[in-house]
């Protein structure tokens, strides 16, 4: 009986499969907790969704700005990588992609497109990336695409 208790305590972890040991524990805990949460909340949540009290998007969501943001950022990342491939190791991928990105995103978020604001936006879109590129890439040799 006592031996049986002792054997409960002992544990051998095979090194070759040890990468699964901890993730399995965490996944089990997540499953248990997850089902608990589901069981406890499924009805009120379902009711809230059906009755329209719960909505995924905020009230009066600005779908245009949201959607363009969600497209603009990946395009920005993709283009800096692509430009960086053609003009390698000069940080130009960053510089040449950032200028239009900053400009477009500013225009997107700007509500009053007055002449003054557009001038500020344009100046900012050119100056900010250039300064960052000049200082960080050239002075501090920070890696850039």
């Amino acid at each position: 009986m006592f031996d049986w208790f002792i054997s409960l305590n002992s544990v051998t972890i095979d090194f070759d499969t040890s990468h699964q040991f901890f993730p399995r524990i965490i996944m089990t805990l997540l499953l248990v907790l997850g089902s608990l949460i589901l069981l406890a909340n499924i009805r009120p949540v379902w009711r809230a969704i059906r009755s329209g009290r719960y909505q995924f998007f905020v009230r009066n969501a600005d779908f245009f700005r949201l959607l363009v943001t969600l497209v603009l950022i990946p395009v920005y990342f993709w283009s800096m990588d692509a430009i960086g491939e053609v003009l390698p190791n000069m940080g130009l991928g960053f510089l040449l992609a950032s200028i239009p990105f900053v400009f477009l995103m500013s225009m997107l978020y700007c509500h009053e497109r007055t002449r003054r604001n557009i001038t500020i936006i344009t100046a900012n879109a050119v100056i900010a990336p250039t300064v960052v590129w000049g200082v960080l890439y050239h002075l501090f040799l920070v890696s850039m695409p």
Partner: peptide
């Protein structure tokens, strides 16, 4: 062609870098 394009761009945009004449690798090295 692509390397000469790179060269042109490099000359235009990064005039600080100078090259040994017979260097077949154009531009900065990472």
């Amino acid at each position: 062609q692509s390397s000469s394009l790179v060269l042109m761009a490099a000359c235009a945009l990064a005039p600080v870098a100078a090259y040994a004449a017979d260097n077949p690798i154009r531009g900065n090295i990472r």
